[in-house]
C-alpha cells in the first residue's frame, strides 16, 4: 500500500505538490490524474525516494522507499522513457538491474517474454521505438515480481494497439493481487483500467473516488425535452427553466417531466413529445471541470 500524507514539494517559489494526501487500496488500480504540470511526476518521484519532499511523507507498506530492504521485490516502477543508455542492449539493461537486485538472469528472459520484447532483446536501445522503450521499462518494473507498481504515464507514446496491450497487461498484473498506481493526463487512457482515481491539479487533491462516484458528481442536471405546437406558450409558463432550441422544441432544466406534463395539461397545451434526458457529463468533462483553473479553491 502506498500512503502519501500531507506531501508538499517546493522548488524555490514554485509549489509543485501542495499538501497532498491519498492512499492506494491493496489489490486495486489507482489512476493518478491531472493535467501536465499538476505535480504527478514529482509526487511519484518522491514516493520512489528519488526526490525529497519539502514536508510530509510518502511510504510504501509503512516505510519510506529508501528504507525498503528489497526495493525491486517490493515496488516496480516506470518513470519515463528516457532512462536508457542508447548504446546498451535491452537485455543488458535488465541484466544490470537483476545483478544489483540479486535476481537470476533467467528472470530477465522471462520478463522479456512477458512484455513481448524477446526479438529486440539484443538490440541497442538507441534503435528502440517509444513503445519498445516503454515495454523494456515495464519489464524492468516487474523484474523483481513486486506487489506494488508505480507507473508514470505508461501509455505515453503508445499507439492504439500498444495502449490496448498495456491495458490488458495492467489488468493481468492487478488480477494477481498487485496494487498499481498509474498516472496519466488523459482520463480516457486509464478509465477502462482503473478502479479508483485521484485527481490533482496544481499539486492539490481535487478528487479521490471510484469512477462511478466521479461520474455521479456531474450528474443530476437532468433536462426534459418537449415538442409542442404551442411551444412558445409553454415556455412562457415555465419561465427561465425553458429554452427554445428551435421552433416547437424546448429543453427544460430543473423540472421533472411529470411536472412539465401536468402544467401542459392544466393549460390545454398539446404535447407531441415529452422526454426526460439525463445530461450525464462524460468522465472527461468531469475531469476537465475538476482541473479547471479556479484559483485557490479545492473541490
Amino acid at each position: 500500500m502506498i500512503a502519501v500524507e500531507a506531501l508538499t514539494k517546493r522548488y524555490g517559489r514554485t509549489v509543485a505538490v501542495d499538501g497532498l494526501t491519498f492512499t492506494t487500496r491493496p489489490g486495486s488500480i489507482l489512476g493518478f490524474l491531472g493535467p501536465n504540470g499538476a505535480g504527478k511526476t514529482t509526487t511519484l518521484r518522491i514516493i520512489l525516494g528519488l526526490a525529497h519532499p519539502t514536508s510530509g511523507t510518502a511510504t510504501i507498506d509503512g516505510r519510506p522507499y529508501r528504507s525498503l530492504g528489497d526495493p525491486t521485490g517490493e515496488v516496480g516502477s516506470v518513470l519515463d522513457t528516457s532512462g536508457l543508455h542508447p548504446g546498451r542492449r535491452g537485455r543488458d539493461h535488465l541484466r544490470i538491474i537483476a545483478r544489483a537486485a540479486g535476481l537470476p538472469v533467467s528472470r530477465v528472459d522471462e520478463v522479456l517474454r512477458l512484455v513481448d520484447l524477446e526479438s529486440a532483446a539484443r538490440v541497442r536501445t538507441g534503435a528502440y521505438s517509444l513503445g519498445m522503450r516503454q515495454r523494456l521499462n515495464l519489464a524492468a518494473a516487474i523484474l523483481g515480481d513486486p506487489r506494488t507498481l508505480v507507473l508514470d504515464e505508461p501509455a505515453n507514446g503508445l499507439d492504439p494497439q500498444g495502449i490496448r496491450w498495456l491495458r490488458d497487461f495492467l489488468r493481468s498484473l492487478a488480477a494477481d493481487g498487485r496494487t498499481i498506481l498509474v498516472s496519466s493526463h488523459v482520463l480516457s487512457e486509464v478509465s477502462q483500467t482503473v478502479d479508483e482515481v485521484v485527481v490533482i491539479h496544481r499539486g492539490r487533491l481535487r478528487a479521490h473516488s471510484t469512477l462511478t462516484e466521479l461520474t455521479a458528481r456531474g450528474a443530476g442536471s437532468a433536462t426534459v425535452r418537449v415538442r409542442s405546437p404551442q411551444a412558445e406558450r409553454l415556455a412562457e409558463l415555465l419561465g427561465p427553466a425553458a429554452t427554445q432550441v428551435q421552433p416547437g422544441l424546448l429543453t427544460v432544466g430543473d423540472r421533472p417531466p411529470e411536472q412539465v406534463g401536468e402544467l401542459a395539461a392544466q393549460n390545454g397545451i398539446t404535447l407531441h413529445e415529452l422526454v426526460a434526458e439525463r445530461a450525464d457529463p462524460s468522465l472527461e468533462e468531469v475531469f476537465l471541470e475538476l482541473t479547471r483553473d479556479t484559483d485557490g479553491d479545492v473541490a
Binding site: G49, S77, P86, H93, A100
Partner: peptide, 12 residues
Amino acid sequence: HGTITSTFLVAP
C-alpha cells in the same frame, strides 16, 4: 542518459 533513475531505484 537518465539511467541514474533505475540505478537508485534498485539501490536507494
